[in-house]
Amino acid sequence: MKHEFLNFEEIDRSTWQQLHRKTTIPLTQSELNSIKSFNDKIQLHEVSDVYLPLVNLIHIYRKARKDLTFTKSLFLQKSIKSQPFIIGISGSVAVGKSTTSRLLQILIARTFKHSTVELVTTDGFLYPNATLEEMNLLDKKGFPESYDMEKLIGFLDNIKNGINCEIPVYSHETYDIVPDKSQKIQVPDFLIVEGINVFQNPQNQRLYVSDYFDVSIYVDAEVENIETWYLERFQKLLKLAKNDSSNYYHRYTRLTYPEIIAVAQNTWKNINLANLEKYIEPTRNRADIILHKAENHEIDKIYLKK
């Protein structure tokens, strides 16, 4: 996939890490290990070199938003209620969005000590598998039409307007929405929204999900690297599912190794790669910040919208 970063300034890692004064890293390696995706690789030096400057930049975005709100209130001659600061994080399947999101949640909470930080993934807004089957969309799971975008936008609108919400919960073990279970979201100071679809234009909707974001981040990598990470993750998921018949991936554990690789490659090519090329990667330029990962999973370049 050709990388063309129009209207972005490229910053290499060595330059980026100088944009934040050296401070004590506010978490331990064991804490970092507990929040990273099990096939991801991240060390404390990446937190110091990449993520602490990123949190500093988020602070700048937040201050600018507060200043604009204050100026608008003077112009309108009325008080404007403070709203949650919403961060959108997108990128391909298996690129490391979840690790980035969970890490930012901890770093922001420990940087802004009296602030609440909630994290929501858009997996919870997928239609249940039974509904997808009725719609003949089960093979398109993860594509734009498999999400209840009206519900997702309604959730974001409520949060922006100070309304507490309950949203569905998705299980990667059962590969489905969990019945009768919800995640309660009290209106926070910061909300991180992570998902492959958060920059996309919802079908039959006038609003983009990203219209609600105060800053947006795209986690990027070369396609061949993402494919390798996906295949590695698929095999690790099968190992975890070996003794759990309720796990969605258990059905594949009886296959031979060549058969497992064939299933994983087919899933990557026909679902995840197709989704990436047609729907996810074309939204990359809507981001404010692009974090580009090298083959070793480490972020080597950062792109800032000019």
Rank of each mutant, 00 (worst) to 15 (best):
L191F: 06
T174M: 03
I163S: 10
S182D: 05
Y170F: 14
K140Y: 14
P179M: 02
K141I: 04
L119Q: 14
G162N: 08
P144H: 06
D148P: 03
E150Q: 13
P168E: 13
I196H: 01
I163R: 08
Q186H: 09
V120I: 15
I159G: 08
L152D: 09
I153T: 06
N158C: 14
V198Y: 13
F143S: 03
Y147A: 01
D157M: 04
N136G: 13
Q183C: 05
V198G: 02
K151D: 05
Y127K: 10
V169R: 12
D180M: 04
E150M: 14
K160G: 02
E133P: 03
V198K: 04
I159P: 02
N161D: 11
D139Q: 09
E145C: 07
V193D: 03
E173A: 10
K140Q: 15
D180W: 01
K141C: 06
F125T: 10
A130H: 08
N164K: 07
I167P: 01
S182I: 06
E166Y: 12
T121M: 04
N158W: 00
C165L: 01
L132G: 11
D157P: 00
I153K: 01
C165D: 10
G142K: 07
H172V: 08
K151H: 08
T174C: 00
E145R: 15
S182Y: 09
G154I: 09
P128I: 10
L132W: 13
G195E: 00
Q186I: 14
L119W: 04
D180Y: 07
E166N: 11
V198M: 12
K151N: 10
N136W: 03
T131L: 07
H172E: 13
V120W: 03
F155C: 06
V120R: 11
N158M: 11
V178R: 11
K141G: 06
V187R: 07
F143R: 04
K181M: 08
D148W: 04
I185P: 12
V120C: 10
S182R: 15
D189P: 12
L152W: 12
N197K: 02
G195Y: 00
K160A: 13
G195A: 05
F190K: 00
P144R: 11
I177N: 07
N161S: 14
P179K: 10
P179F: 04
E166F: 12
Q183L: 15
L138A: 08
E194Y: 03
E133M: 15
I153A: 03
E150H: 14
E194A: 02
L126K: 06
M135R: 11
I177W: 03
T121N: 14
C165F: 00
I192Q: 11
E194C: 00
E145K: 15
L119K: 09
D139N: 14
S146Y: 06
P188F: 12
F190D: 01
L156F: 04
D176T: 03
T122W: 09
E173M: 09
Y170I: 03
F125M: 04
Y175H: 15
E134V: 01
V198D: 01
I192T: 05
L156V: 09
D139L: 07
E134I: 05
D176S: 04
A130G: 03
Y127Q: 08
V169L: 13
F190W: 01
D123P: 05
L137V: 07
L126F: 14
L152N: 13
E194I: 01
P168C: 08
Y175A: 07
L132M: 08
I192G: 10
P188R: 12
C165Q: 15
L138W: 00
I192K: 14
I196G: 00
D148K: 06
N164E: 08
G162H: 09
I185A: 06
